Simulated scan of single mutants.
Amino acid sequence: MSIPTVVFLDAGSLPLPLPLSFATPVAYEPHDTTRPEEVASRIARADVVVTNKVRLTREQLHDAPRLGLVVVAAAGTDNVDLDAAKALGIAVRNVPDYGTDSVAEHVIAALLMSRRSLAVYAQAAVDGRWSASPHFCWHGPAIRGVGGALLGVVGRGRIGEATARLARGLGMRVLYARSPNRPPADDERELDDLLAEADAVTLHVPLTPRTRHLIDARRLALMKPTATLINTGRGALVDAAALVHALRSGALGGAALDVLDTEPPPPSHPLLAEGIPNLLVTPHVAWASEPAQANLASAVEDIVERHLSLERS
């Protein structure tokens, strides 16, 4: 029996390497990154493919006759043609809960930073504005409270619930957007009603044709002018141009984004422009706490090992 080949197409996206401490030999081929034109050749003889964000199309999967498993080293599977994989008998596994706490903590950190305008105040401390103040302090943008404020959670999955738990610990009230896939609960509201009522809104839904630009110009206009929008889900959940307009016009109090609709974004991306008030953008790192990275590496290894054990038996 030949040694199985495990190919990781974008191993450089994970700061921690996969342990892959299997009892039986495995030919492991990690690639720092893989361009679209390189995918077919790199998976052609693979038994297992690990990918974080590299896309796998129907044609590429079809031309990998030995492939039995695709592991998405992330919570979602939107970068794999699932219908094609099913038709070809290729199992697709992901790791949905490795970074739940990490993302929830990032949401709360971003919420506090945005509501308290910490970036502006930190800059004022070193750029001369504080030193030039006639008082012991320097006053700038509004510092909005968190305790007692209402957090609207859109997406009642693991991360949404974990975020709500942390928010309640800060004294926030929490309501959820009503899901069309379950009976309504007393703590849920229709999305439009939730947006109008909440002091902060955090997005935790997958990107689908139905949720693309879920937060568009119409829905941004429903939000309070003091409200904060937080997105750690998928960038395309939010209409970027509409969000820029809402922030620049003062129609929205602030936004904290860990994801954009194109990643990595071009320098000309509208949400990377200078001078957008009270906008915090981080480079898709909400998931990347050290405990979450370790959880992810261990989970991917377990999935691969179980698959190869079944293949050997």
Rank of each mutant, 00 (worst) to 15 (best):
E274G: 08
A64L: 02
K224R: 14
A251E: 06
P25V: 13
E274W: 08
F22I: 06
L9P: 11
A286M: 08
H245C: 00
R58S: 11
W138P: 05
E59I: 10
H31A: 06
R178M: 14
P180F: 04
K86F: 06
N79K: 08
N231A: 04
D216H: 01
A11C: 06
N52D: 07
T51P: 02
V205F: 00
D261I: 07
I43P: 15
V95T: 13
S268A: 15
L272N: 07
D192Q: 06
M113I: 15
A104K: 07
S133R: 04
E301R: 01
I108H: 03
D32C: 10
P277C: 12
P15E: 02
L243I: 10
L111S: 08
V126T: 11
V71W: 02
Q60L: 04
S309A: 13
I3M: 14
V54W: 10
P17C: 04
T282P: 04
T77G: 05
H62C: 03
S117R: 15
T34R: 00
D81V: 13
I276K: 00
V50N: 09
Y121D: 14
E305R: 10
P4Y: 09
D261C: 10
P206A: 02
K86N: 12
E311T: 10
V304P: 01
N94E: 09
W130D: 02
E161L: 14
E290M: 05
A251D: 09
E29R: 13
T262L: 09
I230N: 02
A200D: 10
G145S: 12
R219Q: 03
C137Q: 10
R158Y: 02
L111A: 13
V304K: 09
A242I: 07
V146G: 09
R45S: 15
Q123W: 06
G169I: 14
L67P: 11
V50H: 12
P36V: 12
E311A: 13
P141Q: 05
A84M: 01
T24I: 07
A246W: 08
E301T: 14
C137Y: 14
D258C: 11
